[in-house]
Design a protein around this nucleic acid. Structure first.
Lengths: 189, 189
DNA sequence: GTCTATACACCGATAGAC
DNA sequence: GTCTATCGGTGTATAGAC
């Protein structure tokens, strides 16, 4: 068994429930069945544990998106992947997703290098720019379109989290909400 | 001068910059030119200071919305108020708005009674229900429409915060983005 | 109401044995 | 690699004088 991973998993669960501040390292170690010393053997500081958890999760989410859009070239399909994949991923990994939301809206975000964040944003922005250039997307600032996709994702996630439903219904909501998003940002011919 | 209000103002500024955890009560008191003892004379715990700050700000935002939509009856105008007012309010009160975003995505939110939160949501939900019933809004769950409006607001705020522009341009973006939102949720005849 | 001084709990991190 | 034990620092909150 991988103890480092076990510590990450335990920390994740506790952070989401009690917050970063509300979760002492001693509690993480104890809950994981390990000692404080071991925790600090794997992570030199608490901040490193928190931020590496974020980088970890963000990487997994991005990987899922990349996997989904692999080989795609159509703007619509690409944006669909960037929108739907995180949502389906969130259905299967609610705690991980909650963590990223909490982290992204906390001052911890500043501790993650801008380059690390840009790494996930840049490719999507390139796609959006192409979409605007080609006339597939409305002629508005790609940064704004990016914000709209993000916000829409955020909306649907919030809704799904607060209104439990079976997978079929959830899938339907995600699919329909993508069409709403697409109508909003695409040029209709 | 109202020292309690001064403490609230100082705390607000520091919380947004350093986070709740990163801001000791002693620092708040010192920055406000007061002593720790005085702080705890006005607020019996730090948590009370944090949550009362939230309730305070939320109340002001809601008041601004209510003031804006006073006398309105048309669904479109009402939703426009609920969408635009917070955004314009955020332009003039960026720190306050940042605080609410940070607070809403932290475990502190659980410390605010559900009733307090519902107080701000319920009236808007009533309007949305009426809009769906009347056929002005698309026939989807009002809760979902609510989430969409929220997310859209979140998007535009994020965009405006990251892309500084003059007031005229900002106003234009807010106005145009409302139309995008309206097209998304309204029935087109 | 406001201050100074301080109690005292807690937490992050280290040292050193095994 | 993992543990136990513990240090030093920090932070909330209180006591009591003014």
């Amino acid at each position: 068994m991988d103890k480092k991973q076990h510590l990450l998993d335990t920390a994740l669960k506790l952070f989401v429930e009690f917050g970063f501040h509300g979760t002492p390292t001693a509690k993480i170690a104890k809950e994981a069945g390990l000692s404080s010393g071991t925790l600090f053997y794997f992570f030199s500081t608490k901040d490193e544990l928190v931020t590496s958890l974020y980088v970890d999760i963000k990487g997994k989410m991005t990987a899922a998106i990349m996997d989904d859009i692999e080989g795609e070239t159509s703007i619509k399909k690409l944006i669909e992947g960037y929108f739907k994949t995180p949502l389906f991923w969130a259905l299967n990994n609610p705690i991980e997703f909650s963590f990223t939301v909490q982290f992204s809206n906390s001052p911890y975000l500043n501790q993650v290098a801008a380059k690390e964040i840009d790494l996930h944003i840049a490719p999507f922005l390139t796609i959006l720019k192409r979409g605007v250039k080609e006339g597939t997307l409305k002629n508005i600032d790609p940064q704004l379109i990016f914000a709209l996709v993000r916000g829409h994702t955020f909306s649907i996630h919030q809704y799904l989290a607060e209104n439990p439903a079976d997978l079929e219904k959830q899938s339907k909501i995600i699919a329909e909400s993508f069409l709403m998003l697409w109508e909003m940002i695409a040029v209709h011919s």
